[in-house]
Deep mutational scan, measured.
Amino acid sequence: DVEPGKFYKGVVTRIEKYGASINLNEQVRGLLRPRDMISLRLENLNVGDEIIVQAIDVRPEKREIDFKYIP
């Protein structure tokens, strides 16, 4: 289970102007929005990149997770 405040290694699977889709595994994925990137710009991400993200909002009833990137 993903817990708010914990850090996870994820893989960038899609990049859109509203954010990047991050997969932690086949069943768990979430969104990294541009506003939640401290020192990383969306255009510097590539599909397949592995990054460390922090879960900031977990809504299991909607199967949604928001991530934050902290270098």
Rank of each mutant, 00 (worst) to 15 (best):
P71K: 07
I56V: 10
I56K: 11
A55M: 10
K6C: 12
T13K: 04
K68V: 07
I22D: 01
P4E: 11
M37T: 04
S21Q: 15
E64H: 10
K9S: 07
Y69R: 01
E61N: 11
K9V: 12
I65Y: 09
D57V: 13
G48T: 01
E64N: 05
E64Y: 12
E16Y: 15
Y69Q: 08
S39D: 14
S21Y: 15
V28Y: 12
I56D: 01
G5H: 06
G30L: 07
R59E: 03
E50Y: 14
F7G: 01
G48L: 03
Y18N: 11
I52D: 02
I15A: 01
P34G: 07
R33A: 06
S39G: 15
R33S: 07
R35D: 10
I22W: 07
V2Q: 02
L40C: 10
D49I: 06
R41G: 10
T13E: 06
N46L: 11
V12N: 00
R33M: 03
G48N: 05
V58L: 05
T13N: 04
V53S: 00
L32W: 03
R59S: 07
V58Y: 10
G5Y: 07
D49A: 04
R29S: 15
R35E: 13
N23D: 12
E3M: 14
L32M: 04
M37G: 03
S39T: 10
S39I: 09
I65W: 12
E64S: 08
E3L: 13
L40R: 04
K68H: 06
K9R: 13
E26D: 14
I51W: 02
R29W: 15
E16M: 14
N25T: 12
E64K: 06
T13V: 11
V28C: 11
P4D: 06
G48Q: 03
F67E: 02
R63Y: 12
P4W: 07
V11C: 08
V2A: 04
I22P: 00
Y69C: 07
P34M: 08
G10L: 06
N44D: 15
I22R: 00
Y18E: 13
I22A: 01
V11Q: 05
E61F: 08
V47R: 02
L45I: 09
I70N: 09
D57Q: 14
K62M: 12
D57N: 15
L24S: 01
R41K: 14
S21R: 13
L24I: 14
E61C: 09
R14H: 11
L31R: 04
V2L: 10
F7W: 11
A20S: 03
I38G: 15
N44V: 07
F67Q: 01
V53A: 01
N46H: 14
Q27I: 12
A20F: 07
D1V: 14
E50M: 13
R59A: 04
V12G: 00
I56F: 10
K6W: 05
D1C: 15
V11M: 09
S39A: 12
I56W: 08
P71Q: 07
E26G: 13
P4I: 15
V28P: 01
R14F: 09
Y69N: 03
N23K: 15
N25W: 11
M37I: 06
V58F: 07
I70V: 13
S21C: 15
R59Y: 07
I65G: 02
L42Q: 02
A20L: 07
D57K: 15
G48K: 00
N46V: 11
Q27H: 15
S21F: 15
R41E: 08
R35Y: 07
F67A: 02
K17Q: 11
Y18D: 12
A20P: 03
R59V: 05
D57I: 12
G30D: 03
G48E: 02
S39M: 12
D66I: 14
Q54C: 12
I65M: 05
Q27A: 13
L40Y: 04
F7A: 04
L31G: 01
N25L: 05
K9L: 12
P34H: 07
I38T: 11
R33F: 03
D36F: 07
D1R: 13
N46W: 09
K9E: 03
G48A: 02
M37W: 04
K68T: 07
K68Q: 11
V12M: 00
V47T: 03
V12L: 02
K6M: 09
N44F: 09
D49K: 02
P4L: 14
N25R: 06
E64C: 11
R29I: 14
S21N: 08
I65P: 02
Y69H: 04
D1H: 14
N46F: 11
S39Q: 13
L45R: 00
L42P: 04
A55H: 01
A55Y: 07
L24K: 00
N23V: 13
E16P: 01
I51A: 00
S21G: 05
S39H: 13
L24T: 02
R41W: 07
G10I: 06
F67W: 07
V2W: 06
P60H: 11
P60R: 08
Y8V: 00
F67N: 03
P4F: 08
E50Q: 11
E16F: 15
D57E: 14
A20H: 03
I56M: 11
N25S: 14
P60E: 08
P34I: 11
F7I: 06
Y18V: 10
V12E: 00
R35N: 10
P4T: 12
E16S: 15
I15F: 03
S21A: 11
P34Q: 12
V47Y: 03
I51E: 00
I51K: 00
R63C: 13
G30P: 06
N46P: 00
E43V: 08
N46E: 11
L24Q: 01
V2S: 02
I38C: 12
V28Q: 09
R29C: 14
R63Q: 14
I70P: 05
D49E: 06
V58C: 09
I52W: 15
E16V: 07
Y18T: 11
D49G: 01
E61L: 09
E3S: 10
E50V: 15
S39V: 11
D66P: 01
E64V: 08
N23A: 15
E50C: 14
I52T: 10
N23H: 14
N46Q: 13
I38V: 13
Y69M: 05
E26F: 12
K6E: 07
S21V: 15
Q27K: 13
N44T: 09
L32H: 02
G30F: 09
G5W: 07
L40I: 11
R59L: 05
Y18P: 01
P60G: 10
Y18K: 11
R41L: 12
I51N: 00
E50I: 15
D1K: 14
K6S: 07
V11E: 03
D57R: 15
E26H: 12
K68M: 13
R29L: 10
N44A: 11
Y8G: 00
L32N: 01
K62W: 09
N46I: 09
R35A: 14
V53W: 01
K68I: 08
V47G: 00
N25P: 03
G10T: 02
N23G: 07
V12C: 04
D66N: 11
A55F: 06
E64M: 10
G19W: 14
K62A: 12
R41M: 09
I51C: 02
R35Q: 13
Y8M: 01
V11I: 14
R29M: 15
I51D: 00
I52Q: 04
Y69V: 04
I65K: 03
E26W: 12
K62Y: 09
M37L: 06
P71D: 08
R35T: 10
P4M: 13
F7M: 07
I38F: 09
A55E: 02
G48S: 03
G30I: 09
T13R: 03
R29G: 14
D1M: 14
G30A: 04
E26S: 13
